[in-house]
């Protein structure tokens, strides 16, 4: 993924013939490449448990703040 030297010439857009363009993008930077989803992560049981605890934390804390906010109206 290091910086690439100037690539090949590509012609794009309505005024394409008049506008030669050198592609300076890395191969994995192209829209076509980023369309490809990354594979799911393999999480250990402890990581999964940690993430569930995080979800419970966020829901509980969010509910408390929202309750306090509504109560203060």
């Amino acid at each position: 993924m290091s910086a690439q030297p100037p690539g090949e010439e590509h012609v794009v857009g309505p005024d394409a013939p008049q506008r030669p363009l050198i592609a300076h993008l890395e191969p994995d930077q192209l829209v076509q490449e980023t369309l490809r989803p990354v594979p799911p992560a393999q999480l250990s049981r402890s990581s999964q448990a940690g993430l569930w605890a995080l979800r419970v934390f966020a829901i509980a804390m969010g509910a408390m703040v929202i309750y306090a906010f509504v109560d203060s109206l």
């Binding site: 100037p6 590509h10 794009v12 857009g13 363009l21 050198i22 592609a23 300076h24 993008l25 191969p27 930077q29 192209l30 829209v31 076509q32 490449e33």
Partner: peptide, 15 residues
């Protein structure tokens, strides 16, 4: 590779 308009604009900035 196929270039989209999005790629072309980004490529110009990268140049």
């Amino acid at each position: 590779p196929a270039l989209t308009d999005e790629d072309a604009a980004r490529s110009l900035d990268r140049s």
